[in-house]
Amino acid sequence: MDVFMKGLSKAKEGVVAAAEKTKQGVAEAAGKTKEGVLYVGSKTKEGVVHGVATVAEKTKEQVTNVGGAVVTGVTAVAQKTVEGAGSIAAATGFVKKDQLGKNEEGAPQEGILEDMPVDPDNEAYEMPSEEGYQDYEPEA
């Protein structure tokens, strides 16, 4: 019985440690998101679009440190934060509304985080759909 109880105690310690790591990862992701939003706020009209992409990228980098179902929630929060940063930029006159959601080359930025393969159960990952990809044929 002692062996059984000791095993359960060790398992509990492992769960607590994993929860603490997840909590730490979420806190880091939130900190990076805040950094990115402050970065966007300090940019001029020309830099705002690039700044919004930076927020998304920093958040995406930190999301990889967070495991399990938390990833889905962090990704949703990050996307809403990026959308909010863009709205703030438009409201303050840093950028025109028609410039939001495009990178410096004018290509749409939507789907940055949505296409990231995420499995809350950590069982399997699927690649994003290939609808947006084109076949590449090298020139002879």
Rank of each mutant, 00 (worst) to 15 (best):
K21D: 01
S129F: 14
S129N: 13
F94Y: 11
Q79E: 07
E137C: 10
T59P: 01
A30R: 05
K10H: 15
G41H: 02
T92M: 10
V52D: 00
A27G: 06
A85I: 15
K10F: 00
P138M: 14
P120A: 06
V55R: 02
S129G: 09
A85C: 06
A78M: 15
V40F: 15
K60C: 11
V71A: 09
E28Q: 04
M5K: 08
D98T: 07
A56V: 14
A76C: 15
V48F: 11
S9R: 14
N103T: 12
A124Y: 10
E83C: 01
D121E: 06
V49D: 01
P128I: 09
N122W: 02
S42V: 06
P138S: 01
E130G: 03
Q134M: 06
K10D: 03
E20H: 15
Q109S: 05
K34F: 11
T22P: 04
V82N: 05
A76L: 10
G84F: 04
K58I: 15
E57S: 02
D115L: 08
P117E: 13
A56C: 12
Y125Q: 08
G84E: 06
P117H: 04
L100V: 09
Y39N: 09
E131W: 07
L100D: 12
K43P: 00
A91T: 02
T81G: 07
P117A: 04
K21S: 12
A85L: 13
K45H: 05
V16Q: 12
T81W: 11
A27P: 00
L100E: 12
G25C: 15
G73M: 01
A91D: 06
G84V: 05
A29R: 04
A56S: 07
N122T: 02
L38W: 10
N122P: 09
E13M: 00
V37T: 00
V66N: 03
N122D: 13
M1I: 00
T44M: 10
E137P: 08
Y125K: 04
E110Y: 09
K43A: 10
V48P: 14
G41Y: 09
E130N: 10
A124T: 14
G36Q: 04
E20L: 01
A140F: 09
G106S: 09
A78V: 06
Y39D: 15
P120N: 04
A17V: 03
K10A: 12
D119C: 07
S87N: 01
E131N: 10
E126Q: 14
K6V: 03
G25A: 15
G86P: 03
E61G: 01
D98V: 09
E110R: 05
M116W: 15
A19E: 00
E126K: 08
G93M: 06
K43M: 04
V16S: 07
G86W: 06
V48Y: 03
Q79D: 07
Q79K: 08
M127Q: 07
P138F: 10
K23E: 00
V26C: 04
I88F: 15
K32L: 14
D115H: 06
T59H: 02
K12A: 05
Y136H: 05
G25H: 15
K10L: 03
Q79M: 03
H50T: 09
M5Q: 01
T59W: 15
H50P: 05
T59S: 08
E46V: 15
T72D: 12
A85S: 09
V118R: 02
G86K: 07
N122V: 09
